[in-house]
Amino acid sequence: MVIVDSVHKSFGSVAAVRGVSFELQPGQIAGLLGPNGAGKTTTIRMIAGFLMPDAGRVTIGGHDTAEAPAAARTRLGYLPEGNPLYPEMRVTEYLDFRGRLFGIPRDLRKRAVAWCLERCWLASMSGRRIATLSKGYKQRVGLAAALLHNPKVLVLDEPTNGLDPSQLHETRNLIRELASDRTMLVSTHILPEVERVCHRAIIIAGGRVLADGTPAELTRRSAATYVMQARDSRVGDHERVAKALMNLPHVDRAVDRRPEGPAPSLGWTEWVVTARPGAPDLREQISMTATQLGLTVRELRADLPTLERVFMEVLDRAAGTPSEPDPSPRPTEAAA
């Protein structure tokens, strides 16, 4: 439905996008993730036809954005970053204006505006000036305008930026609802959003695609860590515990460290177990091992891989620096 084929874009001497390629299938919701300045907005602007690529091509429903711009743009609904609107216009007036731009005939336009007002829960605000609306309602006006010509592809650049938690929740629901019969590309740097809403995550930084897959696939690339806080009756023999944990299947590393915090932690040790990428949940095995070794466990927590962690790891790998959080141990002092 959307094909981005090795597009490049530079602004003067700054290369904003350097050979980005991906393809979106019908009905897919993809999240375009990246830090600020990663090239997200430039990529999205090229898909929307606002900018033309220096090299490479973008096609929407088979129409090249440079060779058949009108055909490509009529198939695409776009919510630009910052949701720019005309504050002096009334909601219905603005939607009617957008309908005219897309050449929708009068009677159809009237129905389309009514449908969008209904779909974006804007009916009660239809007569209000846009300037007087809250940010959440403005966002809905932007979404309604993007939907008006019933496009098969929706491209939303930072749709939840600056919304409060309840507006965020509403907008997320709306996006999910709108995506039921459309291909959607959502740019964001709010990663939990992507895990909740998207079928696919494309991570870009420095103008390049660094990772591309479903959130589950991407999180499988990262390792879970487990932290167990326990007291060992055999004082000073942490080695046997670490060894036993290392012998568990799917375990990559097991090290001990002194727990953080003041006096109450004296006598307690923390074992940090790093699983191999893609490993199942190891909490049961760790707990059973602790029981077999006669440890008194007061805490066992799992730090399962999230998209956020994968994102940081991917960015760090690209930058050539180690990833956070750092599970490396501190020197263990003899437990009292």
Binding site: R45, P80, P84, R98, L101, G103
Partner: peptide, 14 residues
């Protein structure tokens, strides 16, 4: 300045 040009030029407007 306001960015509305982006919404205009991504509609089928030459």
């Amino acid at each position: 300045r306001s960015g509305t040009i982006e919404a205009l030029l991504t509609a089928p407007v030459g």
